[in-house]
Design a protein around this nucleic acid. Structure first.
Length: 915
RNA sequence: GCCCAGGUGGCGGAAUCGGUAGACGCGCUGGUCUCAAACACCAGUAGGUUCACCCCUGUGCCGGUUCGACCCCGGCCCUGGGUACCA
């Protein structure tokens, strides 16, 4: 029988579906293992070969774990709310629900062809009301919660209200936007509106007036991780800063816990580092400086510094142009100039600010502060190098030891006083945190690190401020002025946000007449007549923040996830996906999960135990070279003889860089009469590694590979391409090698003639040796995610076995190969007489006995150089070997240096010296 | 600027513990089969020198430790990623 992958693959895919081979249920007799892929956003372009890379790896790992007796949860779904479907809807008028549905069907078709072992009965779609009911539910819970810093967890907001009624803010230590102070009497006398407004300062989902990233082109606000270099990540449109009232999630309350939690996780160091930087913890001092206002009253200006040791060197202060005191600080003489500066900075977009970071600008406010340690009067400036969003929006400037303050001082000719020894202040500031203190009163002569400690204490002793931790992390902006997202289950009673009763969830997304914003710039939901709810919708990350929990219990109508299911499946053991979600999804879902953990709805604090980032697959573009002004195309090797123009050619009509000239003529009408200047009868194309994109004609569709070579070849080849975590170009040049391997494997069962060839003869020691070596190597490689080297091990195994048709060898080989090439293995497994699916076989154990060598190689001197060439039987003594060594000086040194007391003979590594 | 990861043949990449560098695959060269081609199979393939054996050089660069270094240490160069007037 010939290896007919088309017939085999479609037959088994159908059978697996009918038998529900991959359906999984709670089974307390077996240990659980949860393997998850980041679910895809179903875009109109369909899957390309980059998508399945991670899916194939997780599929292999899932099958591998199942063969080891684990009850493996391996689900898949769709992140189906989002901008592209809506942009498309605006352009074409097609309902996003419709295009999303079409795209999902297309994705499913493509996924099915690759033979994944997903339990599709657990599929979730974030745009399905049955699913987003629980997104809305979690939002309501956040709305009804605050964060208690003492207990270090989220608590019902009712507890806080009760506390306010009795004691006011006295004894409250809660995460909030601004510190508040009021008594119980005051609280009880406040109007309902005022009380509600105060509570928003504490709620974990709250509404606030904040600076947001506004994208006019998309007509919506965006979260920080959705903006890069002043442009929207989706679409690449300019983003500006704007003050707006928005829903936010208080993720900052969890900053420290998210930071600490990283320690326990098996994530790559680089990914943890990205999250650490994003959280951006810095320990410093809050210090109040006396400042004289324009009306001659004195106020205390709060700043944050990580260098309290340098306070003696503070010669001026700077506040952000958006600082709330700026008008009260500015003197009449300076008013005009300051107003002008404020206007200027407002106009400068975020992008300009980023691109002109070296430019120094600012203005004197006319106000003076007092340096609490030197007692000197120091001027207060306003400048946009101080950001309103970080710290307090005001700084103490130490030009001698901060490069930005230095540049500013130079520009405005301000005093520069060195307080740490070192550097050359004529050229630049000395920023390093090492050296001896000078000009610093009681700190003079001390080491910088020591001075920092003493200054913290001194600041607190004098009541000037205290030690404080600051985070770079911002609260997440949670509303989008868009249609295709989860509606907020919130209606308004005047200004007061009233949550919907959770019993009435979901609040379904209504139909709208148009998907565009309204005339006066309101979100599309404002078009709906009688819609009394919030008109913005939730952002893309809302639906993906808890989907991994829903898979555990996808059809439960009473809760997000039932207790029993959650207790059994707990959290994700292995999560595979792209690194691009480091500061978005992977932050939000940790926050979301921790919140649900605090409230007792889930039993694990961290959602993803181990995480692997698969690399990006880049495209390998091909070029043809047109002789300028003609319709002649010259092969790569001869192009230097002509003046040519490089043209991208569809990689699907190129094989091993050789152009299919017939297909090229048919590719586009203008090439119909193309002529070719060949070398050795072939047209050789040029190539380059670029991003995989439609416009470069380098997109390779997995369907194409599946048709040409079969799913098994695609699966194995994607793994053979290189290390999983590394970005690499898609290159079909090597695919024949893998396909050849599978055909060779097939021939072990069906022989050269195609007749069934498996027999019951006993295997030889040599055969068993190669089998057991392979079992060991492959098992270890899959555990370590070294899929590429395990494929190599399979190839060596088949090459070494030669014509071996023995069942004793082939059965275990079939099992260990089945995670990679499930269709072929299932086929021959059944041909060997097995009834059950190979998925339920047992992964064979290797036997140490067969791994030992019967001889070993020992270093021998040849012409004065050490060589590892002489082979000895296993039982050779050290003396035997030493007699053979030509004792040249190098060999002597080798023996002396190694000072062997005992030489242990290890088969693989030849020798191992024990001192 | 700071932080992280990496640099090995014509190409993708191996070398899991400091012990024969280049596994495995692609490509290329030669051969077998064939009227011929394709497929398949066999052999060779880091570079230099050589008929060949030998020998010499070789894991980004310079230096160090060691009997021995792709691997450890110090300094530099380059590539990729993250982040940024973050006080």
């Amino acid at each position: 029988m010939e290896y007919n992958f088309k017939e085999i693959e479609s037959r088994w895919q159908k059978k697996w579906k009918e038998d529900e081979t991959y359906r999984v249920n709670i089974d307390k007799k077996k240990p659980k293992f949860y393997v998850l892929d980041m679910f895809p956003y179903p875009s109109g372009a369909g899957l390309h070969v980059g998508h399945p890379l991670g899916y194939i790896a997780s599929d292999i790992y899932s099958r591998f774990k199942r063969l080891h007796g684990f009850n493996v949860l391996h689900p898949m779904g769709y992140d189906s709310f989002g901008l592209p479907a809506e942009q498309y809807a605006i352009q074409t008028g097609q309902h996003p629900a419709k295009t999303t549905e079409q795209n999902i069907n297309h994705y499913r078709e493509q996924l099915d062809k690759i033979g994944f072992c997903y339990d599709w009965s657990r599929e979730v779609r974030t745009c399905d009301p049955k699913y987003y009911k629980w997104t809305q539910w979690a939002f309501l819970k956040m709305f009804a919660s605050y964060y208690d810093n003492q207990k270090n967890c989220a608590r019902p907001i009712d507890e806080l209200v009760a506390h306010f009624k009795e004691k006011g803010t006295n004894g409250v230590d809660a995460a909030c936007t601004t510190q508040m102070n009021f008594t119980a009497e005051q609280w009880n006398s406040f109007s309902k509106e005022r009380q509600e407004k105060i509570l928003h300062n504490y709620r974990l989902a709250f509404k606030a007036d904040t600076m947001v990233n506004w994208c006019p082109k998309l007509g919506t606000v965006l979260a920080n991780d959705e903006v890069k270099d002043g442009l929207s990540v989706r679409g690449g449109f300019p983003v500006e800063q704007k003050r707006m009232k928005q829903w936010l999630l208080r993720v900052t309350a969890y900053a420290q816990r998210m930071l600490d939690g990283l320690e326990q996780l098996q994530w790559s160091e680089s990914l943890k580092e990205i999250q650490r930087n994003w959280i951006g913890r810095s320990v410093g001092a809050q210090v109040f400086f006396d400042v004289e206002m324009a009306d001659h009253s004195t106020r205390k200006l709060e700043i944050f510094t990580t260098r309290p040791d340098t306070i003696f060197g503070v010669t001026f202060m700077v506040i952000a142009p958006e600082h709330k005191w700026i008008h009260e600080l500015t003197t009449n003489e300076q008013r005009e100039e300051v107003e002008k500066y404020i206007e200027q900075t407002k106009k400068r977009s975020e992008r300009e600010r980023l691109s002109e970071t070296k430019r120094v600008s600012g203005v004197f406010t006319g106000a003076y502060a007092t340096n609490p340690f030197t007692g000197k009067k120091i001027p207060v400036y306003a400048s946009d190098y101080v950001l309103i969003g970080y710290g307090t929006g005001a700084i103490m400037a130490v030009p001698a030891h901060d490069s930005r303050d230095y540049a500013f001082a130079r520009h405005f000719s301000l005093e520069i006083v060195p307080v740490v020894e070192g550097g050359n202040l004529e050229e630049s500031s000395y920023d390093a945190k090492e050296g001896k203190m000078i000009n610093s009163g009681f700190l003079t002569g001390k080491d910088v690190q020591q001075a920092i400690k003493e200054m913290f204490a001194e600041v607190e002793r004098r009541g000037l401020g205290k030690q404080l931790v600051n985070y770079r992390l911002r609260d997440a902006i949670f509303s989008r002025q868009r249609y295709w997202g989860e509606p907020f289950p919130i209606r308004y009673d005047g200004e007061i946000a009233v949550p919907m009763d959770e019993k009435n969830l979901p609040l379904e997304l209504p139909e709208v007449s148009e998907f565009k914003p309204t005339q006066n710039g309101e979100p599309p939901l404002a078009r709906v007549e009688g819609w009394k709810y919030e008109t913005s919708t939730m952002p893309g990350f809302a639906g993906s923040s808890a989907y991994f929990l829903r898979y555990m219990d996808p059809s439960n109508e009473d809760c997000l996830v039932g207790k029993e299911a959650n207790q059994y499946w707990r959290n994700v053991d292995l999560y595979i996906g792209g690194i691009e979600h480091a500061t978005g999804h992977l932050m939000y879902s940790r926050f979301w999960n921790m919140f649900l953990y605090d409230l007792g709805y889930v039993c694990e604090n961290e959602p993803f135990r181990k995480l692997v980032n698969q690399g990006m697959i880049q495209g390998r573009s091909n070029f043809v070279y047109r002789v300028v002004g003609t319709n002649k195309f010259v092969s790569l090797g001869l192009k230097s003889q002509y003046e040519t123009q490089e043209i991208h050619v569809d990689v699907n009509i190129v094989k091993n860089d050789i152009l299919n000239t017939e297909a090229f003529r048919k590719w586009r009408p203008e090439f119909e009469n193309a002529e070719f200047i060949l070398e050795n009868g072939q047209y050789i194309c040029g190539w380059a590694i670029e991003k995989m994109s439609k416009s470069m004609y380098n997109v390779v569709n997995p369907d194409y590979i599946v048709n040409e070579y079969g799913a098994d070849t695609l699966r194995m080849y994607e793994m053979f391409l290189g290390p999983l975590e590394q970005s690499k170009p898609w290159d079909t040049n090597g695919i024949d090698g893998v396909h050849k391997f599978i055909r060779r494997f097939w021939r072990l069962f069906y022989g050269k003639t195609g007749e069934w060839a498996v027999n019951d003869e006993r295997a030889t020691d040599a055969e068993l040796k190669i089998l057991h070596k392979t079992i060991k190597k492959v098992g270890e490689d899959i555990e370590n995610f070294s899929f590429n080297t395990s494929v190599a091990a399979f190839m060596i195994c088949i090459n070494t076995l030669g014509e071996c048709h023995k069942r004793e060898i082939l059965e275990p080989l079939c099992i260990i190969l089945s995670p990679y090439i499930p269709h072929v293995c299932e086929e021959v497994w059944h041909a060997m007489g097995h009834e059950d699916s190979i998925c339920d076989a047992k992964f064979p154990l290797y036997n140490e006995k067969y791994l030992q060598e019967d001889s070993f190689e020992y270093p021998v001197m040849v012409n004065g150089k050490l060589r590892f060439k002489q082979t000895y039987p296993l039982n050779a003594s050290v003396k035997d070997i030493e007699q053979d060594i030509v004792l040249k000086p190098e060999a002597q040194r080798w023996l002396e240096g190694a000072a062997p007391k005992k030489i242990i003979i290890v088969p693989k590594k030849i020798i191992n010296i024990v001192k």
